[in-house]
Amino acid sequence: MERRVRTRLGDGGLVEMTPSEIRADLVAGSELGARRAKATPLTDAEIDHLVDTFASEAKFSAVDMGDEVVLSFDGSGNLDSGTRVDELYSYQSHRGADMLELFGIDYSYKAIKTILPWEAQWMKTAQLNLIAPLQYGAMPDLGRYSMPDGPIPNWSELMPLGRIDEAREAQMAAVEHAVADMVYVADGMWEAGADGLDFDTAGAAGDADLLAALTAIEQIKGKYPDCGIELGMAGECTLGMHGELTYHGKRLAGMWPKDQMKVAQEAGVTIFGPAVNVNTTKSVAWNVARACALIKPCMEEAEIPIHPNVGMGVGGVPMSPYPPVDAVSRVSRALVDILKVDGL
């Protein structure tokens, strides 16, 4: 009778599986991801390596010495010990962060615009006291510009009424506001000494959300060529809430990680973070194999560093407020070993 090992589902729950069951999940996840990305599934050798990783009884799993990668963070600091700068010290000195991020709890450029002098002062103070590179981060968050939170007619209400042209016009009006706000915050943060900006969960409100981020990034890089730009995606496939938007002639709706990376690169992004969403009812092994297959084509063509998102519920990490280290370490190792990513 085959041994059973403890592993986890995408919601973090412990389950017992045999190595054969883990292998079957890895193959199924890989094949599904490859179909979506129009790429080839993981090789037999890669699947074998992942079976070894996930069928191990070890509490923790790690890459080989020499294969260490850069650890960047979107939102370093949990506000549970002292000030935000105290938390940044902690991330820099004790939690292994290679890049830090100052952020406001209302993680949206639209919200940050209203408190920019306050946030910029924190950036300056933090820069005086830290050594590790420090960026400022928030979301493009296009939905905030629609009624009732913003001034633009709500496209999500217009579309069900069949008022498609008005919904599209509303999204384009929101893009203008969002770009202006992101560039405004970037101006303030760059003046305060930031090493870079992070545009996190780009595309969360669909293709117009991504267009806003790319347009803002292009303008910011035009003004500040030395400014680091990290672009973290909201999901593996860009939703076509508008459907007809293009960036440099490329249709944004329906883009998968490889094409998302290409437009990010064109806009001036220096670190790209693909996001692959987790299926909470499938095993972590299934999820990480699917993530590897989806991101692999991106790695083959990237000219900039790739840091896949491995927060709660993305990249294979369980959707849980406190992801278990056995799962997080296996997911991290899998992405480094299989994809040769530049960071996480």
Binding site: D226, C227, D342
Partner: peptide, 12 residues
Amino acid sequence: MQMTRGMRLKEA
């Protein structure tokens, strides 16, 4: 080197 120069890991 990654953040502001966009260098891949090996090169960095």
